[in-house]
Amino acid sequence: MTEFTPFVSLLGGSLIGLSAVLLMAFHGRIAGMTGILTGLVPPFFSDWGWRAAFVAGAIGAPALIVSVTDYTVPFESTTPAPWLIFGGLIVGAGAYFGSGCTSGHGVCGTARLSPRSIVATFTFMVSTAATVFVVRHLIGGL
């Protein structure tokens, strides 16, 4: 079980939106993690600097929150290591071929009503829900 947290989730979501707006306003870029990371996988894109800085900020934020405030960031992962490896590989390859992930398609693309992003978001939401159903209710866990 995880607790239903509408207010803090709405606040967190708004901050994700704010970062997307700022990245467009200052850098002219879509705040999609897959697209940003792709430029940091060899061979590096020539504009790797802002990409590396964005990723460093994204990693640094929870570390800062935990070390500077009393807030604990809830985290629980029960997926066995072999399945994490498999999941990681197909998330990376799938999001690359699909041209984006939750942040790129789900937030930025959908917000500007891109037909590709709306189709991609619908597809991965359905596919994720179906996978969770199979894993939890048909197989009974991994």
Partner: peptide, 11 residues
């Protein structure tokens, strides 16, 4: 690609 990404996300 999006469907495959969803399977990984769900796992």
């Amino acid at each position: 690609g999006s469907a495959a990404f969803g399977i990984g996300w769900g796992i």
